[in-house]
């Protein structure tokens, strides 16, 4: 296939600077997540009550938090959760919306109705509020938060994917494939999926960023992750009291959340624009 991203982006000069920076940030964070054990200078869980809320030093690059733990090491340890949780939510959104959205859009009729009524039901729910209630009532913790957010998140994706599938369905090439006898499922996965995947990628990026912010918000409120877990949202709220002693304890996870969310969105936008432009340029 000559249409892969790599073959198209032969020169880095074609890529806008913002996207390069965003990719670099994501690569760094992913690397931190994978190699956390090897690169973090301290054990992120080890407390030192005699050295709490220290300002940054040459050994503690971002100082220590309220329990004397190394903020930099915790930031590195937190990158894993910051990637895995949102990734799972965004990925499940991608898969489920690709299946249900394309099915609803392409098949239409009663199946479409059934799926979309389900989607309408989810839309009617007050999202974040419901998550807070469910997570605090069930004491479900992190995984419950992931599950609830994942279910709530998928509705938007299904709508979008259904919309673009409906558009594709009316295009002559799909009709021609029907006429030559290509089976329905094959049309869906061999032809519709590849042609709408810029949308899927864009969805994935927005979902990821949204889930990251939502999960961090829950952690900030003390829900979701366990107390003491090196979670960026929790670090943000835990670091708050030491704003006057070591503001890096609160500032650094805040900055990383914003950086990661913005980076993912930037890349998603760019990939989407890239493919949309290509398809316009016949």
């Amino acid at each position: 296939m000559t249409l892969t991203l790599r073959s198209r982006v032969s020169k880095l000069r074609d890529v806008p600077g913002s996207v390069l920076v965003a990719s670099l940030i994501i690569i760094i964070i992913c690397f931190a997540a994978v190699a956390a054990q090897f690169i973090s200078p301290f054990n992120p869980m080890e407390q030192d009550l005699l050295a709490v809320s220290l300002k940054p030093t040459s050994s503690h690059w971002l100082g220590s938090d309220e329990l004397g733990r190394d903020v930099f090491s915790r930031l590195i340890a937190g990158s894993r959760g910051a990637i895995i949780g949102p990734f799972l939510i965004a990925f499940s959104g991608l898969v489920v919306s690709a299946i249900l959205g394309i099915f609803a859009g392409y098949r239409g009729g009663s199946i479409d109705n059934l799926i979309m009524r389900g989607v309408d039901f989810i839309v009617a729910l007050p999202g974040l509020l419901l998550t807070i209630v469910v997570v605090s009532v069930t004491h479900g913790g992190y995984w419950m938060a992931l599950l609830v957010l994942g279910v709530l998140n998928v509705q938007g994706d299904i709508r979008i994917v259904r919309g673009v599938s409906l558009e594709q369905r009316k295009l002559p090439y799909i009709e021609a494939l029907r006429v030559v006898g290509v089976p329905r499922w094959r049309i869906m996965y061999k032809h519709i999926v590849p042609n709408i995947y810029p949308i899927l990628i864009a969805n994935f990026a927005t979902d990821f960023a949204g889930a990251l912010v939502a999960l961090s918000g829950l952690s900030f409120l003390g829900l979701g992750s366990q107390p003491g877990t090196p979670d960026w949202g929790r670090m943000l709220s835990d670091g708050q009291p030491s704003l006057f002693t070591n503001y890096w304890a609160a500032l650094s996870p805040g900055i990383t959340i914003v950086l990661l969310a913005v980076s993912v969105n930037l890349i998603g936008d760019w990939v989407y624009d890239f493919y949309s432009k290509k398809s316009l340029q016949r």
């Binding site: 249409l3 002559p172 032809h191 590849p194 042609n195 398809s279 016949r282």
Partner: peptide, 8 residues
């Protein structure tokens, strides 16, 4: 322009 799958 729309008669062929653009990715095939």
């Amino acid at each position: 322009y729309s008669s062929l799958d653009p990715r095939q």
